[in-house]
Design a protein around this nucleic acid. Structure first.
Lengths: 207, 207
DNA sequence: GATATTCGATACGAGACCGTCGCGTATCGG
DNA sequence: CCGATACGCGACGGTCTCGTATCGAATATC
């Protein structure tokens, strides 16, 4: 009776603090966003996480592995893909996405990390790949799905280039966000007004 | 007769190598684009410039001043503002600008520096300010001028938000450039096709 | 030729950081 | 209570960088 057969032999000794992992990862993300990979020091992470440096090295082999793990833990609070299946109009769905992106100002965690990762695309491909798969791809896929559905429903023009349209929606917001650090509240709506004639199936093909 | 009154007392001793200044600045820009401020080492600059470290310190007080000077020396090969006064159509002028931006791939000097500077907007405001004044502002002003002229000529809609339109033109290209590192050749033209209905005065106001 | 300044090369001190280790202590199962 | 493993603290060696200093050689004016 002293042994629970369902519970696999638990390791002896003092168990690890679960909070430590999360604290280390969070501190790493915060400092990485502010300082970048090179300027990020594990000693600063240890202090910020309220943890000793040895504790970090007990869990990760080194700095690079820690940063990679931290990037993988970036929780992307983008709206669930399920939204794409709702019966709201395509324009409404796109506006939701635009407002969501605009609402995180450039000083948020993922907002600060984004331009940083762009600089690592060439110099630190492994870091970039992790970020790309984790953050960029999901919202690209989400946008693509909404746009394709809009085409099927004949709300968007049949010959629309989905990738181009996605860039046209996101690019201007990113640019303003990172150049000025903030966004006029009406910017997403005005952007949609500007783009809609070229996106929608309503206008004549022109040319 | 031994003294030329027109020539002010020239300093004795060995004069400085003029080429050295340019070589140092160029090496600094190149390494800064690749490594960023923190990872940039003056020893690497010295080697790349074919110069001794002492030569650098004879001309600049320190690392920060050197980088600031190098950024100020970034020659921006954007088309001259005089182009805005030509009699080409607004759409043609805008296409020229878009192609110009698209032609520098993300691995060019200014292309690599751009996202780097975005990360310094908060953490290193002096570096960002230098870059903003030197690179961002000129092409913003150029675009604004073209767009305003287009409104006056009634080629663009009268109620067009100039800043928004500029972001809509540049943002998508920047995004694609830095996400993928390259651009489909037809991208600028297709982008203009997408945006033009919302920009031009030709379409009905809609809504 | 005397003098002054720059040149490249190189050594140096101070400090930051990485990654490792040892110490004493806390917390688990048996 | 014991063994095992976790913890925080702090020291250490090695490496890197900044910025200064020193050297003989080169190049200019007077």
């Amino acid at each position: 009776m002293s042994k629970n057969p369902a519970r696999v032999a638990r390791k002896p000794g003092r168990p690890r603090e679960q909070r430590a992992d999360r604290a280390i990862v969070n501190a790493t993300l915060e400092l990485f966003a502010d300082e970048g990979y090179h300027a990020l020091s594990l000693e600063a992470v240890a202090v910020a996480a309220g943890v000793s440096k040895a504790t970090i090295y007990r869990r990760w082999p080194g700095k690079r592995e820690l940063v990679l793990d931290a990037l993988a833990a970036l929780n992307d609070d983008f709206p669930a893909p399920a939204d794409a299946a709702s019966d709201r109009s395509t324009r409404e769905l796109l506006m939701t996405a635009l407002h969501h992106i605009a609402s995180r100002d450039a000083d948020s965690l993922s907002g600060r990390i984004m331009p940083r990762m762009m600089t690592y695309r060439v110099s630190q491909p492994d870091l970039y790949a992790e970020y790309f798969d984790r953050v960029i791809m999901p919202r690209r896929q989400w946008l693509f799905a909404v746009l394709r559905r809009g085409i099927e429903r004949q709300e968007l023009r049949a010959d629309l280039d989905v990738a181009l349209a996605a860039a046209a929606l996101i690019g201007p917001i990113m640019l303003e966000l990172h150049n000025a650090g903030r966004l006029a509240a009406a910017m997403p709506d005005k952007l949609m007004d500007l783009l809609w004639p070229g996106l929608s199936a309503g206008t004549s093909a022109g040319t």
